Computed example of a mutant assay.
Amino acid sequence: MAVPQRKLGANGPTVSSIGLGALGMSDLYGPADEAESIATIHEAIDSGINLIDTGDFYGSGHNEMLIGRALTQRNREDVVLSVKFGARRAPDGSFQPVPYDVSPAAVKDRLAYSLRRLGTDYIDIYRPSRLNPEIPLEDTLGALVEMQQAGYIRFIGLSEVGADTIRRASKVAQISDVQIEYSLLSRGPERAIIPTLRELGIGLTAYGVLSRGLLSGHWSADRNLSAGDFRASSPRFQSENLGHNLALVEALGQVASRLGATTSQVAIAWVAAQGEDIVPLVGARRRDRLEESLGASTLHLDERALSEIAQAIPAGAAAGERYAAGQMATLDSEK
């Protein structure tokens, strides 16, 4: 199956219309099989997915090393690597309290480790995972521009930032894309962020397009979460919220059934249908889930389908925030 391509922003790279988010292969979603993860990365590349997203803190570096091993068996030039930095981990694997370290010194230090773990001499898109209000954005971007000029990174991205910050950043550096959660259950970016990105010619890479599995069509109310699965503390997976949200997913499933598609395929295709400047990231950890997600790349949603989807899951219909209150308070994109 050939995956269509689209340009990531006016000045960004050309990428597949669906990208692979690798977080779940190393972190936060319970155990993952390493051999299967590498096989999934290989199948993604062989199927035409060239955008792979990771973070240096995913699995405390494990995710980058995993991707690095996978890439030894594929052509590096066929892959667009998107890497986030800034979050800190403790030896026991827990996340260190905010603020994130996005100082100029950290930009260069973390980049050095990422290059080594990934086994490459450049990263295609490098971005701070979150901002630190105590570190001027201009300082962080200045260091990124310096690394870009030195050839260590090709494009500069941002993550979870609001419209005002996007405008401010665009005056300092050429931004390829902003990575943010965007799905049928997370419509916040539509208010100000997406219009600002389009005005400035900046792309959007959407994570959480299946809302951490809620929109996959594979979730059940009685599912037990394994130790370390962060969804156990996610408001949308809590008691009454979960029941409400699964009812929305059931309605979406009825639309999918009419279209001869799966619920997750419709959810992914809906994100991609919101504009040629938007690229959904799918967090498939297994080849069968990847194959299902790939079906979304050729699923056309006509006006009738889009209307039915809007009726099934209206904007703002989700119960519960996308993160716990403490995390929501730190997001520049939510201000």
Rank of each mutant, 00 (worst) to 15 (best):
E240M: 07
T298I: 11
S17N: 00
G253A: 12
A44N: 12
P99E: 13
I175D: 07
T330C: 02
A329E: 15
H218L: 10
G228W: 06
G188C: 09
D121K: 06
D288T: 04
W219D: 07
L28F: 13
K171M: 11
P133H: 15
S264N: 06
I268W: 14
A284D: 14
G188M: 13
V145Q: 10
R74F: 13
D229N: 01
I193V: 15
Y113A: 14
Q238W: 03
A319H: 06
F85H: 08
A272M: 09
L158C: 13
G217S: 01
G316V: 09
E181I: 04
P195A: 08
A296R: 04
L28P: 07
L225Q: 06
G86V: 09
A150L: 13
E303L: 10
L111A: 07
L185N: 01
D302G: 03
A261I: 08
S60Y: 04
F155A: 01
L141F: 14
G243P: 07
V107T: 04
L248I: 11
T298G: 06
A35T: 14
S297W: 07
L141V: 10
K108D: 13
F155Q: 09
P91W: 08
P104Y: 10
V255F: 05
S17D: 02
L215C: 12
K335H: 08
I41E: 02
R258S: 11
F155G: 02
Y29N: 15
W219P: 01
V255S: 00
Y100P: 00
S47P: 08
G61H: 11
A2K: 13
E138P: 05
G68C: 08
I38W: 02
V102F: 00
T165R: 02
A269Q: 05
S307Y: 07
L158Y: 09
R287A: 02
M65K: 15
L111E: 03
K7W: 00
Q311W: 05
R6Y: 13
G162E: 08
L301C: 05
L81T: 02
T120K: 10
G68Y: 01
A312S: 10
R212A: 14
D164A: 14
E160F: 02
V255W: 05
S264F: 04
A112I: 02
A256C: 09
L215A: 12
A329V: 11
A173S: 15
L28E: 09
E134N: 03
R88H: 05
G86L: 07
G201K: 11
E160L: 03
P97H: 10
Q5S: 15
S94R: 14
G55I: 01
F85K: 02
I175Q: 06
D109H: 12
Q254M: 13
G316P: 06
L81H: 04
P31I: 09
G201P: 10
L200M: 00
R130G: 00
L137E: 03
P104T: 07
D229S: 03
T140H: 11
T205E: 04
V178W: 01
L23P: 00
A247I: 00
P4R: 12
P136F: 10
I194W: 05
D33K: 15
L71S: 01
